[in-house]
Simulated assay, not measured.
Amino acid sequence: MNTFLVILLIAAMIATVVALIRGIVAFLKVTEAELKGEGPPSAASLKSNKMMQFRIFFQAIAVLIVVVIMFAAGRT
């Protein structure tokens, strides 16, 4: 059980890093005019926002797995 949780934790951490990198790359494609709030958001802006939302989601999953691991370790 513990090994499975550790594997899940590693997968969640990798997913967090991947989402972070993809979000940063998408953010770098955003133009200066978009950053000033001029005009509608571009596809790059929307993708950057979505990737950062995924990053937060994967981070939350990783934290929950750590809590479960610590709870399981405390019970033994």
Rank of each mutant, 00 (worst) to 15 (best):
T3D: 15
T3L: 15
F4T: 12
F4G: 12
I7E: 15
I7N: 12
I7G: 05
L8H: 06
L9T: 00
L9S: 00
I10A: 15
A11T: 03
I14R: 08
A15D: 09
A15Y: 01
A15R: 04
T16Q: 14
T16G: 10
V18P: 02
V18R: 03
L20D: 12
I21K: 11
I21N: 09
R22D: 15
V25M: 13
A26D: 05
A26H: 03
L28M: 11
L28P: 03
V30E: 01
T31H: 07
T31V: 05
T31L: 01
A33C: 08
A33M: 14
A33F: 07
E34Q: 03
E34I: 00
E34M: 04
G37L: 02
G37K: 05
E38N: 08
E38A: 07
E38R: 04
E38T: 06
G39W: 02
P40V: 11
P41E: 08
S42I: 03
S42C: 04
A43P: 04
A43N: 12
A44S: 12
A44V: 01
A44N: 09
A44E: 11
S45H: 08
S45Q: 14
L46H: 08
K47R: 09
K47G: 01
K47Y: 00
K47I: 05
S48F: 03
K50F: 04
K50N: 06
M51K: 00
M52T: 00
Q53I: 07
R55H: 03
R55Q: 05
I56C: 04
I56V: 11
F57S: 05
F57E: 03
F58Q: 00
Q59W: 05
A60C: 13
A60G: 12
I61Y: 02
I61C: 06
V63M: 14
L64F: 10
V66W: 02
V66M: 08
V67G: 07
V68E: 07
V68Q: 01
M70D: 06
M70P: 00
F71K: 07
A72W: 09
A72E: 09
A72G: 13
A73M: 10
R75L: 14
R75K: 13
R75S: 13
T76C: 14
